[in-house]
Design a protein around this nucleic acid. Structure first.
Length: 547
RNA sequence: UGGGCUAUGGCCAAGUGGUUAAGGCACCGGACUUUGACUCCGGGAUCGAUAGUUCGACUCUAUCUAGCCCAGCCA
């Protein structure tokens, strides 16, 4: 796929100048949570940059902090990335490189570039200064190399308790860039690591580990988000001072933010823990697993990411943009089928009592390859309640009303004559007559119907659970209201609807419910109890005109 | 208040000194229509502000304003 943005330009120049023969990239998630739409930008960008420039892309789990990570996320992340179609050449773990990182740290000490600091966490914070005040050197900064070497080895060998000492690098305590004020590169942390077990009690910090990981793997372009811009000088410092053979280049791009959508891990976790959503893969979430479960095609996500480009500006993209791309993907691939979410019985008084006709209906007018199906039609059918009104309200009304004639798609014209109501005045039945002359496909065109509506045969249809989704959080930007008070109580609407009797879908099958929207079979669905998720509704100018 | 980054129509976003300032989403008209869908046609910005440089600036300079990021032994 063609892409054009500043990073692509940089890579092309590096190849043209001979600096690199190809691009090697990586996606380095920390296995501490689920991936969401925002991550898709990083994944797809890294993947495509490598693929488009003769190279390859690695998946590397950045597992340098065992207390925050969990192996269970590793499989979930792999599944999400595979789903996006971004094939990784190698699967690595930062922990694979712990030995080499340790050796490089020894090298820094020997070069007089790193020292063991005995200051407490609070003291280190105090010595660091703040945004406007320069920091000052630690009193331990000038220890002898031999002493630093011994101390660091002792740290590694478990001589000291957690937090007692750290290894820091000597740069500049007065730097305006906080990251350069003698950053800590190793801390003591007795925690079981999913990969290295209890082998280590010291773990490298991100700023030290990441550039080494990239260099070891021969990454040419290390793409990450904007908040790491301030870390780039340190990244370069580590690569240089650790004397890494390969010199990767870090380039930052803007994060993808979706307007009105929750992406913060702690917020999603709270929603999950409080059963506001049914899990990390709830279709209302924009986690990749949620989008997948909802039925969004992964190709639509790729197209969406590419369409957005790769800006450094900050803004929130509206979900409508993704929705429209999803519709574009589904319109020619999803078979049409009729479903009635809110049934109203329609009795065709002049149709024979026991007669059943099977009418041919194309599965997709835009894609004949999807073929046709036979749909049953009889005296008793269900239509959508909102497709009938007693009195036609205005000339715009293109549905059924008393005295008005519409076409039942693929069947006949029917004219409504009377209604039956219950005690409360609710319409429970509409009586109509049909015109046999108007059968679909007969070529009849001597008069036009007032509209076209769909239906489902009353007896020959199946019940199904249909889930509709709305915004999970209302008034998202309002900071005055606590997060949980903004949860939309109606973000999930469950309908008991009727679908065609021939409906017998497999998991993840997608359909267009005629005149309504695109739906996907949910993982909760069984043969006895079908469950559909609305992926996205059809566009509609109806409600807008009505108002 | 120090440093880094960003600022183009309601939203996203092209554009790197000379274009009527791309495109998508959304919105508003209209055509077509056995999905009020699809498709098609039409509609809107002088580019955060100000002052400069220049024959000419969204593109260069200066100042200002606004937003985001940084003071974890997180990543």
């Amino acid at each position: 796929m063609e892409v054009s943005h500043f990073i692509n330009t940089i890579i092309e120049e590096d190849i043209k100048s001979g600096k690199h023969k190809k691009a090697i990239t990586r996606f380095p998630p920390e296995p501490n949570g689920f991936l969401h739409l925002g991550h898709a930008r990083a994944i797809i960008t890294n993947y495509m940059m490598a693929k488009n420039h003769g190279g390859y892309f690695n998946l590397r789990f950045d597992d340098t902090n065992p207390v925050k990570e969990d192996i269970s996320f590793v499989e979930a992340i792999k599944e999400d990335i595979a789903w996006l179609g971004c094939h990784w050449e190698n699967l690595f773990f930062a922990s694979d490189y712990f030995d080499e990182m340790y050796e490089r740290a020894l090298l820094l000490i020997k070069k007089g570039k790193a020292f063991v600091d005995d200051l407490s966490a609070d003291e280190i914070k105090e010595y660091r200064g703040d945004l406007t005040t320069p920091g000052k050197d630690s009193p331990y900064r000038n220890r002898l190399i031999e002493e630093n070497l011994k101390l660091f080895i002792d740290m590694k060998n478990g001589v000291y308790p957690d937090g007692k000492k750290v290894l820091r690098v000597k740069i500049d305590m007065t730097s305006p860039n906080m990251n350069m004020r003698d950053p800590i590169i190793y801390r003591i942390q007795r925690a079981f690591h999913h990969n290295t077990g209890d082998k280590w009690c010291i773990y490298p910090m991100y700023d030290y580990a990441h550039p080494i990981e990239d260099a070891i793997e021969g990454i040419t372009h290390s793409l990450c988000s904007l908040e790491f811009e301030d870390h780039r000088p340190l990244y370069d410092w580590v690569v240089e001072n650790c004397e890494m053979e390969n010199v990767p280049r870090q380039i930052e791009f803007g994060k993808l933010i979706m307007a009105g959508k929750v992406t913060g891990k702690r917020y999603i976790k709270q929603l999950v823990d409080n059963n506001v959503v049914i899990g990390w893969d709830d279709p209302r979430l924009i986690t990749l697993s949620g989008l997948r479960r909802r039925g969004i095609p992964s190709e639509a996500i790729t197209d969406f990411i590419v369409a957005l480009g790769l800006p450094k500006s900050q803004g929130a993209t509206e979900i409508d943009m993704l929705d429209q791309i999803v519709r574009d993907h589904l319109k020619s691939t999803a078979p049409r089928t009729n479903a009635v979410l809110d049934p109203l019985l329609l009795v065709i008084d002049n149709y024979p009592e026991d007669k059943v006709e099977y009418l041919e209906a194309e599965n997709n007018r835009e894609n004949e390859e999807l073929g046709t199906r036979q749909i049953p039609f009889s005296k008793y059918i269900y239509i959508e309640r909102e497709d009938f009104i007693e009195e036609k309200p205005n000339k715009k009304w293109k549905r059924l009303a008393l005295g008005i004639e519409v076409r039942l798609m693929h069947a006949y014209f029917v004219k409504a004559n009377s209604v039956e109501k219950d005690d409360k005045g609710n319409i429970i039945k509409v009586h109509c007559t049909y015109d046999v002359e108007t059968k679909s496909g007969s070529g009849f065109n001597s008069r036009k119907p007032n509209g076209n509506i769909h239906f489902v045969d009353a007896e020959r249809s199946k019940l199904a659970e249909i889930r509709l989704f709305d915004d999970l959080i209302l008034d998202f930007e309002n900071k005055d209201v606590p997060f949980f008070d903004k949860v939309n109580p109606n973000s999930l609407i469950v309908k008991s609807g009727l679908v065609e009797e021939n409906m017998n879908p497999a998991e993840m099958d997608r359909f267009q419910f005629t005149r309504n929207g695109y739906y996907c079979v949910d993982k909760d669905s069984t043969d006895e109890h079908m469950v559909f998720n609305r992926i996205v509704s059809l566009r509609s100018s109806y409600k807008k005109k009505a108002n």
